[in-house]
Write a protein that binds this DNA or RNA. Structure first.
Lengths: 342, 342
DNA sequence: TACGTTTGTGTAATCGATTGCATGATTTGA
DNA sequence: TCAAATCATGCAATCGATTACACAAACGTA
């Protein structure tokens, strides 16, 4: 049962005031060298640890940062959080994680919890673009709690964000399929109320346009980010009068489902049909028929997010800083769309 | 720029003392119904939020729980954390995540960080069994900070733990291979200084013994939990005078490497060779040749860990509570070891 | 009426660290 | 040698909520 030593204990021990102890511990130049040394030594001897709660109350800073994600147990978000963590820990910030499970009311709850917990900042990847959570976001801003979006953002003035260039990602993925000789490229798109999915779709359209392929909206079909949906949606595509000869999926999971369905129908990949996914989930690489996909550099994204936060915290200027960082997507070409060796 | 309202603001507004406000907000029976209602209403009107930092200082409880894992971006740990989170959030605890990257000194750092941050408890899956971190663990206990192990534990009196029955897991995995007709079963084992890997190995041995198969130590070979090591280790096994006809790997990643190497050597799975992995990583299910594996119920493990913590927090009795919970491993039989359809 | 109880509130201390202001001691400069 | 400047330190308030103790008012009872 080790009693905690406080600055008062040290003060009593040395017959000086707590104020002097506090100043000495903070290397205040007003305190004489000898006193500082004495206090430091005594503090070490008495195994003194600063009480961060007391500091938090006085300064109004908890030293905690809230991170809100749809879910934590996917490679993408797990890696982003890892990046955030690695950047913030050396700066004495702790990371508090919340999950929304793609549920808006849960998102609101989480933000309130974090505000209650007096976090020094919030980093969030929002669930979707609906108006419902607009209000709570503004409450965060009103409270002057630094807010940063990553990956799934809202466009709000004065709020920084770290995303990847989803338009470009959609573009290069589609362009790659065109380069492989595909002419009828379908797109499994995500919830269009989210900017990321909208941009992937637009990139896809632009690539078609730039390469003289007419856009056909029957080739665009929304799919959830899971295998089952990928299967059923692909099945529908294959029943079209003129079925597609390639799929660009906005999700790796849906792409995997698509591949399973294609195989089930005896279609040869990549000979007769090419597939590109999105996210570079670990399994895309491990599959026997490895899946081409877009890497989103999640680790990097996490680190950038944390860095931008730290910059804003250290920004003592009077003006608000807004940074919109857009990372470069990287296309990994794998077996599911490589025809050069055939 | 919304100024925060405190109980003093409410007190001033109503011309009563802050003490009364505090008591009213906490539904103290000493306060008259009418006052409580008045205070509650005014608090709501003034948008009062309790300052958790002040509460934290006074009570000595931060409301934060530290969770230490080797890494966060794997399915297993991600899911455990998710489980912990889901159980603790409704109880007003926040979860602070730390990663050790399998580095002992990092582990010590993390524990110190958490103690500094005045967490109300620590849940940890340790990096390994070496003596170096023994000291810091005891410091946690001395400080009376509740400590709980999950998955990778140390055996310390009075400390609760939630694990799976790794011995049984090793046993049923091996028994399954024997049932498939395999006679020369190799084991890719993990770091034997970790109890979990030691127990998987022991279960493997016992299953062999119980089924009249002589244990052959040349069939046991240590492998790191990654594909590359799985490949190289399997290559070595195949060069033996009498190569094995099955592998029970203590890691899914090594199992995947093993399968890749087996295929590369033209060996038919499961006809000529069976493989069972460990962990039920998502990819094991997605592979075209899906991999048999042991599920560790990580979500359940996380939830149990949190529950045990909450129980200990609510335990007002004078005695210490120690719970050693052992979850049941579940064998998922998939293509890599299913001979019944051949 | 007088006295003991109950009820509802207020006063002030507490948690631990920080910091503006005051003060006493020492040094500097003329 | 004395005023001014510098230096080192102490005092006390502060952050916001809780709570032991005190106390006044209201009530009940003999």
């Amino acid at each position: 049962m080790s009693e905690k030593t406080t600055i008062y204990d040290i003060a009593k021990e040395l017959n000086i005031s707590a104020a002097t102890v506090s100043r000495a511990l903070n290397n205040n130049p007003k305190i004489s060298e000898s006193t500082i040394k004495l206090v430091m030594d005594t503090a070490a001897k008495m195994n003194y640890k600063q009480n961060r709660l007391a500091l938090a109350l006085r300064s109004g800073k908890s030293g905690n940062i809230g991170v809100i994600v749809p879910r934590i147990n996917t490679n993408f978000f797990g890696s982003v959080i890892r990046g955030i963590e690695e950047e913030l820990h050396p700066n004495k910030y702790n990371v508090i994680i919340c999950q929304t499970h793609e549920d808006e009311s849960r998102e609101i709850e989480n933000i309130n919890t974090l505000l209650d917990a007096q976090v020094d900042g919030i980093m969030i990847s929002i669930t979707n673009e609906s108006k419902k959570n607009e209000k709570i976001i503004h409450r965060v801003l009103e409270k002057n709690v630094p807010l940063i979006f990553f990956d799934r953002k809202k466009n709000i003035d004065g709020v920084s964000s770290i995303t990847i260039d989803d338009f470009k990602a959609g573009y290069i993925a589609t362009k790659h399929l065109i380069d492989q000789g595909c002419k009828k490229i379908a797109h499994l798109c995500g919830d269009q109320s989210l900017e990321i999915y909208e941009n992937r779709f637009k990139g896809y359209q632009k690539a078609l346009l730039d390469n003289g392929i007419t856009f056909d909206e029957t080739y665009v079909i929304q799919s959830k980010s899971n295998i089952e949906d990928g299967i059923s949606v692909t099945n529908k595509l294959l029943q079209l009068k003129t079925p597609p000869d390639a799929i660009f999926s906005a999700s790796d999971f849906a792409a995997l489902g698509a591949i399973q369905e294609l195989k089930a129908q005896g279609i040869q990949i990549p000979k007769d049909f090419c597939v590109v996914g999105f996210g570079n989930e670990p399994f895309t690489k491990f599959m026997e028929l490895s899946i081409s996909t877009i890497d989103q550099s999640p680790l990097e994204m996490g680190k950038m997010t944390a860095k931008v936060f730290l910059e804003q915290m250290n920004n003592t200027e009077d003006f608000k800083m807004e940074k919109k960082i857009v990372l470069n997507p990287i296309l990994h070409i794998r077996k599911s769309s490589s025809r050069q060796n055939l």
